[in-house]
Design a protein around this nucleic acid. Structure first.
Lengths: 138, 138
DNA sequence: ACAAATAACTTTCGAAATGAAAGCAATAAA
DNA sequence: TTTATTGCTTTCATTTCGAAAGTTATTTGT
């Protein structure tokens, strides 16, 4: 009983099979902006993911190796999620989403979204490196 | 009765609201590789999208302004889909998907996928420009 | 010490989205 | 003028989803 993971051998299609949905990249986004997040933190982000969906996505992303779950140093009931290198390497994808949104959804997105896009336009490489290193931008 | 399109004012989330699913970017991919595609062409790509889903996605992507539908010059029952500038500007996102897949799904993806990734690694800017201009790479 | 609050889920359930298959109308090919 | 083809639409069983309530192990407040 092995599950069929991938629809094809195309890298785009296969990547989409892993995190191509409406929530996964938002979880990654939160971890790029904050480095560590708890279940509750994710629950409180503006898009209001349901706990069932969040639980499901965190499990999947952990299995796929994009993030890890670890114990909180002092509080036993809290867990800390953070990106792996594999997860941090999604930064360029996220960055291009930001830039596309900046270009085509300008009258809808927030000022802070715009600010990040403008930083990216100024110096994409540096900003992406900052994200990957866990430097909080927002 | 306006429909709520967006979950938030985040550019990532909003972009995902438009094309964040398992099929939309594959349609865009096909149009980057081929410039013009018919309904049948899309139906025949390796991931085997169902006609109901394909119809639905083409309509949505057209409404969102990512692609256009036009008549075939000689055959009245065929329609030609092609990307708009807005759609072609998804190229950097697609490119980053290719690169991430190359890095992390190397033992699963096809040789042609790898070849494109290697071209991107050699010279990302030039390859992306080629894609955007409709130069067929594969 | 003990009750109340909290974090991280899990469960339930109705609604929406999906895939597979069949059906259909217009046009083109034989 | 029959047959095939294209581009869908329809149907329907299955899967996925969101919203809300429930559960368990801690932890906090008194």
């Amino acid at each position: 009983m092995e599950e069929k993971k991938f629809r094809s051998h195309c890298s785009i299609s296969s990547s989409l099979d892993l995190f191509g949905d409406k929530w996964s990249l938002l979880i990654v986004r939160d971890l790029l902006y904050h480095k560590q997040r708890t279940f509750k933190d994710f629950s409180q982000s503006t898009e209001k993911i349901s706990s069932a969906r969040l639980s499901d996505r965190l499990t999947k992303l952990e299995h796929v190796g994009i993030l890890t779950k670890k114990n909180h140093p002092t509080n036993k009931k809290v867990f800390l999620y953070e990106l792996t290198q594999k997860g941090r390497d999604l930064t360029p994808i996220i960055a291009e989403f930001i830039l596309w949104g900046y270009r085509y959804l300008k009258d809808h997105i927030s000022e802070s979204s715009k600010a990040i896009a403008e930083e990216l336009i100024q110096n994409k490489t540096v900003v992406i490196e900052k994200f990957q290193k866990g430097v909080i931008l927002k």
